[in-house]
Amino acid sequence: MVIDPATLSTTAVVDSGPRQPEWRRALQASLPVGIGLVPLGIALGVLVVQQGFNPWWAMVFTSLIYAGSLEFIAVGMVAAMTPLPYIALTALLVNFRHVFYALSFPLDRVKGRLARFYSMFALTDEAYAMTVTGDRKSMSGRVIVYSQLYLHAYWIGGAMLGATAAQWIPENIVGLDFALTALFVVLSIEAIRAQSGFAVPSMAVMCALIARLVDPGHMLPIAMGAFVSLLVIRYFWTRRKVRTDA
């Protein structure tokens, strides 16, 4: 049997089909996540107006901060005129996990100084999950940046929609800021299911309860500081145990 190389080449081209533009691939990849970001953005926009800010401040917060949970916290802290050092410390503790994201985030695929700067700025939980799991590991640098741009646009659009609609929403509606808490509850449940034990969740609950008893007004930084410290201690203790057993 004789195989014609030309036939093989033609068949391969036909089977592969036209390659989608990178912006379209990024749009398809980010759309499911973006659908989940819009309601949270709406909740943030409503919260901004309820705290006494003008609606356009929703765009300022989402454009310049873009840190999800930190934005919900920052709105209340700015409204309460919290000192800047305290805000900075809270931001460090809340977003400290991004230090670990950087260890496996494929920033080397992103070309160009401006694109890299924006990719680092837009490194959110959702963007990280999209780029390091499953088939996403084959995403090019442009697809990564486009995906982050789309996610950012979903977030800004949701916040602006919420800030605009808040003008017609009664002020006595409370609990909209709980939307992010509900999201993290779901994420925590999924994380617990993926864990081999309950050591880490138990430490988190213990730190929260102790911080609540020690100083309810500064519960968040105390709890997160204690939790990070326990994680570091646990890491070195586990590492030492592995070396001893070996």
Rank of each mutant, 00 (worst) to 15 (best):
M1C: 05
I3E: 14
S9M: 09
A12M: 11
G17C: 08
Q20R: 14
R24W: 14
A29F: 01
A29C: 09
S30H: 05
V33Q: 01
V33P: 03
P39C: 14
L40H: 00
G41F: 11
I42Q: 00
A43D: 00
V46P: 01
V49N: 03
V49M: 02
V49Y: 03
Q50C: 09
G52L: 03
G52F: 04
M59D: 09
S63P: 00
L64K: 01
S69G: 09
L70N: 06
I73R: 02
M77Y: 03
V78Q: 03
A79E: 02
A80V: 13
I87W: 05
A88T: 07
L89D: 01
L92W: 07
S104L: 10
L107P: 01
D108V: 13
K111C: 09
G112T: 07
A115N: 06
R116K: 09
F121Q: 07
F121S: 09
D125S: 04
A127Q: 02
Y128Q: 04
A129L: 08
A129C: 08
G134M: 09
M139P: 00
G141L: 07
G141N: 08
R142L: 13
S147N: 12
S147W: 10
Q148T: 14
Q148R: 07
Y150Q: 05
H152R: 08
Y154K: 02
Y154D: 10
W155C: 05
I156P: 07
G157V: 07
G158Y: 07
G162C: 01
A163H: 05
W168G: 15
N172C: 11
T181R: 03
V185M: 12
L187K: 02
S188H: 13
A194L: 15
Q195W: 12
A199Y: 10
V200W: 02
M206F: 13
M206A: 15
A208V: 14
R212V: 10
M219R: 10
P221V: 10
I222S: 01
S229C: 12
S229T: 15
R234I: 08
Y235P: 09
V242F: 06
V242G: 02
